[in-house]
């Protein structure tokens, strides 16, 4: 069980990979490394386990213990008044309360819509972008740098400018009104049925650079001779994408797919900045709903219960992720 692995990056690695890497059709990203290694010296093993200790202890106190607290809160009645005191055990009352009020099922549906939009656009445009960015030249390298830069910016910065661009007097409504495409400005972020899609689109925008970068690296690893052979056989560009790039990028796609699913699922920063969950509850996805219940409605027990539900979602995704990595590594 490992993450995606690859040769260590060196300056100008793409170029070198082009020239020197032999064909590894089964795993363009994870190929250049031996899978199993023998422990060099048995005596070193125990010493190396000590290397795990600091992180283990730190995470036990600041990650695992909070998780236990979260589960305890989820089955208790916790309000700001009782936050620091003993909690009254209420069992599944919090979960039931969230479910009966309709908040939880609605949030689950919203989360699904959100994740589907982010995943389809993130994967689709990421792949298309990688195909386009494979070309050498100044435009491609500047565009790639621009995309990685936007990706590296704090989400609050990207979210703010998109809130501005999508506003009533923003650029998009300026264009729409200027071209007389609508009588009134489109309420991208103020209409309950549009807001969720708007935020999902901006979230896709935020994940595309990363996906394009990873896809591009996978494509760069394909032996150039494959393309030469295809060209001799008279393959056109579309056939090249269809019959070489997509199948070769499949192992990458699998891992990237899970990562994009996870990204969409746990996303909250763009929602926070652009709509704060609104209008009403229109953009409350499941992770965001838990936060709102705890820190806006001050019902920590209810918020914790909703968060435990998101945790179940995480567990499912983690299993899928682990399996896809195993598959990618061919274990």
């Amino acid at each position: 069980m490992t993450t995606m692995t690859q040769a260590p990056p060196t300056a100008g690695a793409d170029v070198r990979r082009f020239v020197a890497t032999p064909v590894r059709p089964s795993s363009p990203v994870g190929g250049t490394q031996r899978r199993k290694r023998l422990d060099p010296a048995r005596g070193g093993r125990r010493a190396r386990m000590l290397f795990l200790l600091p992180a283990g202890l730190f995470l036990a106190v600041f990650s695992i213990y909070p998780l236990i607290q979260l589960c305890r809160m989820a089955v208790s009645d916790v309000t700001p008044a009782t936050l620091g005191a003993a909690w009254k055990l209420v069992g599944f009352a919090n979960v039931v309360k969230g479910w009966v009020s309709g908040a939880t099922p609605q949030a689950i549906i919203r989360t699904l819509i959100f994740v589907v939009i982010v995943t389809i656009l993130g994967m689709g445009i990421g792949f298309a972008g990688a195909v386009a960015l494979r070309t050498k030249g100044r435009w491609s390298s500047i565009l790639l740098a621009l995309m990685v830069f936007v990706w590296a910016l704090p989400p609050v910065v990207n979210g703010s400018v998109w809130k501005f661009l999508l506003g009533e007097n923003g650029l998009f409504n300026g264009i729409i009104m200027g071209l007389h495409l609508a009588d009134r400005p489109v309420p991208f972020l103020f209409d309950p049925s549009v807001a969720l899609i708007s935020v999902a689109l901006v979230n896709s925008f935020a994940v595309i650079p990363f996906n394009a970068l990873v896809y591009r690296a996978a494509m760069m690893n394909i032996d150039p001779e494959v393309f030469e052979a295809a060209q001799i056989d008279g393959a056109n560009r579309w056939q090249e994408v269809r019959h070489i790039l997509s199948p070769m990028a499949r192992p990458t796609s699998l891992v990237l797919l899970v990562l994009t699913l996870v990204y969409g699922f746990r996303s909250f920063d763009y929602i926070y900045v652009m709509t704060a969950g609104g209008p009403g509850t229109a953009t409350n996805t499941l992770p965001f709903l838990g936060y709102m219940q705890a820190f806006v409605r001050y019902d920590y027990g209810l918020g914790a219960a909703t968060s435990v539900l998101t945790l179940l979602g995480v567990l499912v995704l983690a299993v899928v992720y682990t399996r896809s990595i195993r598959k990618e590594e061919g274990e």
Binding site: L70, L83, P287, Y300, T310, L311, A318
Partner: peptide, 26 residues
């Protein structure tokens, strides 16, 4: 260890903030 790390890295940020707020408060 790897399994735990995968789960922890996937945890939504919004989920961690609730118990940490309580723990840091206490």
């Amino acid at each position: 260890g790897l399994g735990l790390l995968i789960v922890l890295q996937m945890m939504p940020h919004t989920t961690n903030v609730i118990p940490l707020f309580q723990i840091f408060g206490s």
